[in-house]
Simulated assay, not measured.
Amino acid sequence: MTHPDLAAMRESYTLSGLSVEDLAPDWTTQFERWIAQAVSAGITEPNAMVVATAGADGHPASRTVLAKEVSAAGVVFYTNYDSAKSRALTENPWASATFPWYPLQRQIHVRGSVRRVEPERTAAYWAQRPRGSQLGAWASPQSEVVPDREVLEARQTELEREFEGRDIPVPPHWGGWLIEPETVEFWQGRVARLHDRLRYRRAGSAWLVERLAP
């Protein structure tokens, strides 16, 4: 078979530029602008972000999760607290998250410390989840080895019977993480790989805006 030539693959980024004058006065407003444009452009799951962690052993890992809240406090996502990512975040409470909006030739990078969100905040979000997703959170021993898919589906069916006719409570092993940003970078692709990279960096109670070399 013919293998694709990875070295020859390249796109010329010509859609837009990004200057300091373009930026909102704070990173959250700028984020809201860009995600609204991603939604308008029909980006699939525009709230999807790649979260990178490293545990006590220093070994990095990344995976895609869904951001469920963005505010001045930071970015919130929900997961199993027994999962590999949660174990890493407990051992080393720092994370990086990237929103990759390739059709718009844009990315946002959020980097900072993390902490668990309050149980009542988790409960409020949990109440909005589809019932199937709630059952899935109970059924899946996330990141553990399982013999086959049938084990998971059987557990899901068992839980459907167990919770039939009543609300499903939040599992004790499930909840939210808040990434509290130290930096938030807005990346816009440009011609000849001279991309625009503008970063908000926390400096005490203020935020500085810096241009980074591509």
Rank of each mutant, 00 (worst) to 15 (best):
L89F: 04
R115E: 10
A84S: 03
P103M: 09
E91C: 00
A97F: 10
S96W: 12
V75D: 07
T90L: 07
A84W: 01
K85L: 09
W101S: 07
E91H: 00
V110D: 12
R87W: 01
E118A: 15
Y78K: 05
S83K: 03
A97W: 06
H109R: 15
A97L: 06
Y102H: 14
H109I: 11
P119I: 04
V76D: 06
P93K: 02
R121G: 06
Y78V: 07
W94K: 14
R111K: 10
N92G: 06
T98V: 14
P119M: 08
L104R: 10
A84H: 13
Q107I: 13
S86E: 01
V76I: 15
R111T: 09
Y78E: 02
R111G: 12
R111L: 06
W101P: 08
D82C: 00
R116S: 01
T122Q: 04
S113H: 13
K85P: 04
S96G: 15
I108Y: 14
W101I: 12
S83W: 04
D82V: 00
W94F: 14
A88W: 02
S96I: 03
P103I: 02
T90S: 08
R111H: 12
A88G: 05
E118D: 14
A88Q: 14
R115W: 06
P119A: 10
Y102L: 14
A95L: 10
H109E: 09
F77M: 04
T122A: 12
P93S: 09
L104C: 08
Q107S: 13
T90Q: 07
V76W: 07
W101C: 07
W101N: 07
P103W: 10
L89Q: 08
S86C: 08
P119T: 09
R87S: 06
V75C: 06
Y78P: 01
A97S: 09
E120V: 05
P103A: 13
P119D: 14
R106N: 09
W94N: 11
V75I: 12
Y102Q: 15
V117F: 10
F77W: 12
F99H: 06
A95M: 06
R116D: 01
T98E: 09
Y78H: 14
R111V: 12
N92Q: 03
S83F: 01
P103D: 11
R116I: 00
L104T: 08
Y102D: 15
E120F: 05
W101Y: 04
E120L: 09
Y78A: 09
R115Q: 07
T122E: 01
R121V: 13
A84G: 04
K85G: 00
N80S: 10
V114D: 11
N92L: 00
G112T: 12
T90M: 05
S96H: 14
R115Y: 05
R121K: 12
S96D: 07
H109L: 11
Q107V: 13
S96L: 07
A84R: 05
T79K: 09
P100H: 11
E91M: 00
V75E: 04
S113L: 08
T90W: 03
A88V: 02
A97I: 12
R87K: 11
F77C: 00
E120M: 08
Q105S: 15
H109Q: 13
S86G: 03
Y78S: 05
R115P: 03
T122V: 15
G112H: 11
R106F: 08
V114C: 12
E91N: 02
I108K: 09
Y102I: 11
N92Y: 02
D82F: 00
S113R: 14
T90D: 01
A84I: 02
E91D: 05
E118T: 13
